[in-house]
Design a binder for these strands. Structure first.
Lengths: 225, 225
DNA sequence: GAAGTCATTTAATGGCAGTTAAATCCATTT
DNA sequence: AAATGGATTTAACTGCCATTAAATGACTTC
């Protein structure tokens, strides 16, 4: 499996969320930053390898096998991102590009060892779910701060990505894994008052929408497809 | 720079030790596990990119620039090997193949961060020297145990690679970074008596030739090309 | 110095992944 | 039912990296 093939599988996997009855060539080409003709070509190759179903003019759909491959690439991507942030002190906005390369390293043992080294994380630094070895995505209580009620308490597990926002968080001394308790919500402007690191802070509605919390209550350790 | 180009540069760098006045196409092809014609082709491409000097029928020689690239690939390879052994508990014989992939990841920042994370190691798990960011190889007192005298004391920094030998070391409870003091040498069969982990052991001449020590005495912290 | 041998290069070809340009399909409009 | 327009596919070509087969160069040997 080439890098390019893996990248197409990953793209199709993500696009299937939006295109439930077949991912169109054009959408695929756009996501891959290439031309529709290139996408058609690749899709034919992947179809021959039984990694996806392809009916001309009707888009593509991953096969069971294709999905397994796609999920494993996503797993590796998210584990490496976690590694880069947690162990090598990268900031959240720097890791994507590097993880795009690392996700193609072929060694199941490496992936598993990395997973263990990181203590089997369930979410990456962007708050995206990390599938386990079997390909199951964890079920966790992940919500945007903006959706919380007064009294809710949780851990900051992810943020919306943008250099400006990350900079802002840095200035505000808000970091990944900080424990946040919702003190109150201001109905007037949807701003939130939170307690974080034993300090009381107020964050705007826009900020609240960009922070992902893992809620403490009702936590389940189940996983599902 | 493609993976393949980087691999050729690395191979040429290593071969220049043996072929000081030009690396022959055939030697290069053999190291790359490919055909001479493929090597010629690649060599032409690399010559066009000014990474090496190529005179038909007279072999190749890296340019300054080519050498810099080759050394950086070697640096990454050895840092990743160190990471795999020290952090992910891989054994010495498993890491080469994975490092062959990781060495091509493009991010200077990643390499530097990894270096720091590993505490700027000077040797990899095989005892090979790790060049620094500038491309200088460290100067250290690295010797085979077989070349030591009674009274010498040092740290086990590398071993000759083979599954059998690594297995043997495991059984003998000899590990990387163990401190070894030479108690005596038996002239009869060139076996060595050593103190390791507060225990006295005798190792055969063959074993002594396969263990690399970093001697404690006369250590220099200089680096050189 | 001609012949032979080995190393090396050139030429032709194939797979992968992209491009542009032309052709084709599908759905809608008239 | 024909025409139009957008999405999609096909065709022809390029670069990278390998292959095999043929040609050529360099050196030894007689």
């Amino acid at each position: 499996m080439t890098f390019s093939e893996e990248n197409y599988l990953k793209a199709i996997f993500h696009l299937e969320e939006d295109f439930e009855d077949g991912v169109p060539t054009n959408a695929l080409a756009e996501m891959m930053q290439t031309k529709a003709s290139s996408a058609t070509d690749m899709v034919k190759r992947l179809a021959e390898k039984k990694l996806l179903h392809y009916i001309p003019y009707q888009g593509v759909r991953l096969t069971e096998n294709g999905e397994i491959h796609a999920i494993q690439v996503i797993r590796k991507h998210r584990l490496w991102e976690t590694f880069l942030v947690e162990k090598l002190s990268f900031s959240w906005d720097e890791v994507h590009e590097i993880a795009e390369q690392l996700e193609h390293i072929k060694s199941e043992k490496l992936t598993d060892r990395l997973d263990k080294f990181l203590n089997f994380p369930k979410v990456d630094p962007h708050g995206d779910l990390i599938p386990n070895k079997k390909g199951d995505f964890p079920v966790i209580n992940k919500v945007r701060l903006s959706e919380c009620q007064a009294g809710d308490k949780g851990t900051l597990i992810g943020v919306e990505d943008s250099k400006e926002f990350l900079n802002f968080l840095d200035n505000q001394q808000i970091s990944l894994h900080d424990i946040i308790e919702v003190v109150g919500k201001e109905e007037f402007d949807n701003s939130f008052t939170i307690e974080i690191n034993s300090k009381i802070k107020t964050v705007s509605s826009k900020t609240a929408e960009s922070l992902f919390l893992l809620l403490d209550v009702g936590r389940e350790d189940n996983v599902t497809k």
